[in-house]
């Protein structure tokens, strides 16, 4: 269901801010219908000016970053709302890796759910990598290899990153999240039975005015 992730080669675009929130990544105001255009939604209010024209100063609008496949950013990326459109809009623009100093919890989870690789680098490693990305300025791509857990590219040696083994497997194999849990269907049913005895009020949710 989700596309497996092994290796991704792409231009790395530096978005050098902390606390970028999902209201900015996927503005609610750009959401109009059940089938939103996630490609246009991404950073909509940063990419476009009020008259609809492009803002040439925004990093993803610069010629060298228009086809960026990797976003490089600061702390607490994806803060705020849980809206998953903030991940879908990355994928719609072929951004499959975000390298950050840290991610907001729900955003990181939403990435994993959709086969978008969230790479966390220690602040000093991140700063060194950002310096490389800025120096390269989109002239050559970087390669993110989840098998080897490395980012390689111009301007320096491979950068090694850490990711919990289980999450790595899940991304590599594109494991179906629901399917993985359904292997525990018996345990879920057993829990429900036990809970109905131990805390029966949890297993029924009825409007008692109607009983």
């Amino acid at each position: 269901m989700i596309q497996p992730f092994t290796r991704h080669i792409g231009i790395a675009a530096p978005l050098l801010v902390d606390d970028m929130n999902t209201d900015q990544i996927a503005p609610f105001l750009a959401s109009r219908s059940l089938k939103d255009d996630y490609r246009i939604m991404l950073f909509n209010r940063h990419r476009f000016r009020d008259d609809g024209s492009e803002n040439p100063d925004f990093v993803l609008n610069k010629p060298q970053f228009r086809k960026a496949g990797i976003l490089v950013t600061g702390h607490n990326f994806g803060a705020g709302s849980s809206r998953e459109s903030a991940v879908w809009s990355m994928l719609a623009n072929d951004i499959r890796v975000i390298v950050a100093k840290s991610f907001a919890d729900i955003y990181r989870e939403n990435c994993l759910q959709n086969g978008l690789l969230p790479v966390v680098l220690e602040p000093d490693v991140a700063d060194a990598f950002i310096a490389r990305v800025v120096a390269v300025d989109g002239a050559a791509p970087f390669t993110v290899d989840l098998l080897a857990q490395t980012i390689s590219g111009p301007g320096g040696p491979d950068v090694v990153f850490q990711i919990p083994a289980a999450e790595r497997t899940r991304l590599l194999e594109g494991l179906d999240d629901i399917g993985m849990t359904m292997k525990h269907a018996d345990e879920i049913a057993a829990w429900e039975q036990a809970a109905a005895k131990a805390q029966p009020w949890l297993q029924t949710a009825r409007d008692r005015r109607q009983v």
Binding site: A166, E167, R170, L175, M180, T181, H184, E187, I188
Partner: peptide, 10 residues
Amino acid sequence: IGQRVDGRDL
């Protein structure tokens, strides 16, 4: 309920 193959708690 248990632990999934990817190490997460259910």
